[in-house]
Amino acid sequence: MAKKESTFINMVIVLFLVTLIASASLGIIYSITKEPIEKAKVAIKIEAINKVVPAFNNVPLNESLSVKQDKDSLIIYPAKNDGVTVGTAIETFTNKGFGGKIKLMVGFLPDGTIKEISVLEHKETPGLGDKIENKKSDFSRQFVGENPEEFKLKVSKDGGDVDAITAATISSRAFCDAMQNAFNVYKSLDTENDSTTVKK
């Protein structure tokens, strides 16, 4: 069978048809995968929240608050048991990481102490900056149980209370920056009433 001739009209029709069929197929696949993709994203968030706050029976994702900062946002997830706040998970970030953005999920107890920290995303150097991860070193353990009102969230080089990771000062500083952002937002919550509005 001879190939179709390269006349102008043939070329236009074929290219148009190919693109049309392609777009249609993709549209279908997109609508099929839309929900699972959303579900996967939500599952990751819920897993992180579960790790950093005590047991709760509300749906933090439905009561979340967003605070804009630096072209992105910090997100507050209140965790409540029978309507009483047992903890607040804050999705925070910093752009000052060695490899770029670092995202953390920090859990605060109602008295302001840090319950737990989970690293969501980072691009720090393997073997050095990646020690901010829980399973790679105890760096993040020193924050647990501390209240940032007294525990200064800066590395000791900068006059704070945090022991930096050896040879990974930039990553350690960035981690503290993300923690400070989270704490600042936490303090601004109207906790006298409930953790669902930000103090003016």
Binding site: M1, A2, K3, K4, E5, S6, T7, N10, M11, V14, L15, V18, T19, A22, S25, L26
Partner: peptide
């Protein structure tokens, strides 16, 4: 392959692959 004119084969292949 026989439906695609010679001159537009690369762009057509690209669209197919991209899909």
């Amino acid at each position: 392959k026989n439906q695609i004119p010679e001159k537009v084969r690369i762009p057509s292949f690209i669209v197919i692959i991209a899909s």
